[in-house]
Design a protein around this nucleic acid. Structure first.
Lengths: 354, 354
DNA sequence: TAGAGCCTGGACAACGTTGTCAGATGCGGG
DNA sequence: CCCGCATCTGACAACGTTGTCCAGGCTCTA
């Protein structure tokens, strides 16, 4: 008995010492100070009815005096919903994802939710790790730009009620909502545009074909070439390169081989930027169409013709669908494909140089 | 009694119905299935020692079978730390903030923390709302790019132990860690660069002076002009405009007034982009130096000379400081100023055109 | 073989909030 | 003057986890 009492005093002292820094007032503290019950504080904090103005004022004063802030962790534990959603993308530093993320955030905000986001760095393991960490935090929903191609690990989560929407690329091995740009159609149109301007030897530089958008764009390229009856040479295609040096090498190779290309179709914004550089350094004009719009593209000489997708619209559409899942107004997974838009600015309209 | 029993049955039924969708297994469920105690499950989940391999296997099987995922809200409630930090910035869609955010995320990840971020849209009220929402979720720390100039509302939070670092602009009315770029020095150097190339009538287009960086850059502009003994005319300065149309108007005005400028110093990346456009449309060459680097700046004709700041480094520095606060290895708030770098690419070296 | 000491497992309280329900208070009418 | 009713307030359990502490079974030694 003495021993236990001693223990308690030690614990109490430790707690009090620590409380100067790191312990926050709780509703109980507020209640004690205001001389009311715990639940009354809860009512005031949440704006529930049934509190006299006088009582409310006393409680409010105590709240202000103590600097009380409701602990949402406890609230979540009780209520079950966190009012937060997770966004997993590839790299927030990529200018394509900034507007997308912002759009998701705005929709979340309109629904009173916060956004937690993480970058997968195009690594499937890291994607899974992130997604599961978000699930452990009990986000209400997930917007995922997948890096991996197997999302069966999400099945228990989805079954448990986590709303899920995939963006930019479809989910692997599971049936889920997907919002995509029309990569195939966009690429086909872009390449057809080059063909229409007289090109026949057209290069394609894209990311790894295991990435759905890359594969689709490659398919679009092939389709356009085939439609025009042009056989594609292997030397015209570079797949899986994305870092500037290797893109540079790939572009230089296609421009200098035995049957050099007269035009390049760039599979994404980063490739486009590097391609612009390589072409600008070369002496002869090379036509270029890029997938994804890039800033200042209109100010270059010539302006860069692009197949633009609306990143913000992609994010908005996905987030709205997510919240409709949460409302319960959605039942069956769907695949939504947003159109792309060819923006001609000059580089895609250059005639072949030979 | 009957009534209460009735109630209970209704509740039970509702719960069971719902449980197919929306209720997740808990450690208790896992324990029951594995035939062990609650705490044993906790030990397995957290990799704590003191569990026989055989027991561990049984527990693990139950976890997999039920699709159990630890509820971090409950964990947080118990442990006090959330392993998450908040980042409040102006607009994630702005290319300046993408790399910054990503850098913060990487540091957080290295410390096992998740990043919750929000955009203030340069609105002080929204900033406060966001910050307090983050505090309610008990983030361990906050990285804030302030929109407002009074942060006294944060005092109770900081006192309660929320680590806080301000980035890009200093905190208002409170003493806190700040990580900044040297806006004053950078702007002064940039303007001096123009002066060194023979310019005397130099325009300045910047954001609202209530934003610290804008004020500092304006001060740098004035200092450089004063150092060179050049009196500044009001018509050369445009403050508080940031949307493209108004920047355009401002630039056109300075270029066509009674004493037109021969060079423009652009106060931030968005202004720079618009200035490039206006200048490109005009007939006579106008020199330009911009604050913040922009993508493709080197490919324009002429290349855009800029005063570059390292957004990623800003974020990294701030986040590292944040975690050092959390380690307890930091005591006094400090102000860290990172240098800027003048990158000459052509536009800033053009001679005056008259 | 008994006792000491270690290892494993489990019962229980606590974290801070909210939902439920019952008690207290005040008011008007019979 | 008392009762019924409406309004306001508070006690208590529960959410799912972790820390503390104790019990029981084991091994090892004297």
């Amino acid at each position: 008995m003495d021993y236990r009492t001693g223990q308690r005093i030690v614990a109490e002292t430790a707690r009090r010492t620590e409380s100067r820094y790191g312990n926050r007032p709780t509703m109980k503290d507020v209640a004690a100070r205001a001389g009311v019950g715990l639940k009354t504080v809860s009512r005031v904090v949440n704006g529930e009815p049934g509190v006299t103005p006088d009582t409310e004022r006393r409680v409010q004063e105590a709240i202000d005096a103590l600097g009380f802030r409701r602990n949402d962790s406890a609230r979540v534990l009780r209520k079950g919903r966190t009012a937060s959603i997770g966004l997993v993308l590839e790299d927030l530093a990529d200018p394509f994802y900034g507007p997308l993320s912002r759009a998701v955030e705005e929709v979340a905000r309109a629904h009173g939710a916060l956004l937690i986001n993480g970058s997968s760095a195009e690594d499937p393991d890291r994607e899974q790790e992130l997604v599961l960490a978000l699930c452990a935090r009990r986000v209400d929903g997930l917007v995922i730009i997948p890096a991996g191609d197997d999302h069966r690990y999400l099945e228990p989560e989805i079954k448990a009620g986590v709303a899920t929407v995939f963006v930019d690329r479809p989910a692997g091995q599971i049936d889920a909502d997907v919002v995509l740009s029309d990569s195939f159609g966009g690429a086909r149109d872009g390449v057809a545009h080059l063909i229409a301007h007289g090109h026949r030897r057209i290069g394609f530089i894209g990311d790894m074909p295991r990435i759905h958008t890359s594969a689709e764009r490659l398919r679009g390229y092939r389709a356009a070439m085939e439609d025009a009856g042009i056989p594609v040479e292997d030397a015209w295609m570079s797949l899986g390169v994305t870092d500037p040096q290797r893109v540079r090498k790939a572009a230089e190779d296609m421009l200098s081989g035995p049957s050099p290309v007269t035009a390049i179709f760039a599979g994404n914004n980063r490739v486009t930027v590097t391609a612009v550089r390589v072409i600008a350094e070369g002496s002869r004009p090379v036509a270029l169409v890029g997938f994804d719009d890039i800033e200042l593209a209109d100010l270059l000489q010539p302006g860069v013709t692009v197949v633009a997708q609306d990143a913000a619209q992609l994010g908005r559409t996905a987030a709205e669908r997510l919240f409709r899942q949460l409302d319960g107004s959605l039942v069956l997974p769907e695949r939504i494909e947003l159109p792309t838009r060819l923006i001609t600015r000059g580089s895609g309209e250059l005639p072949p140089s030979d």
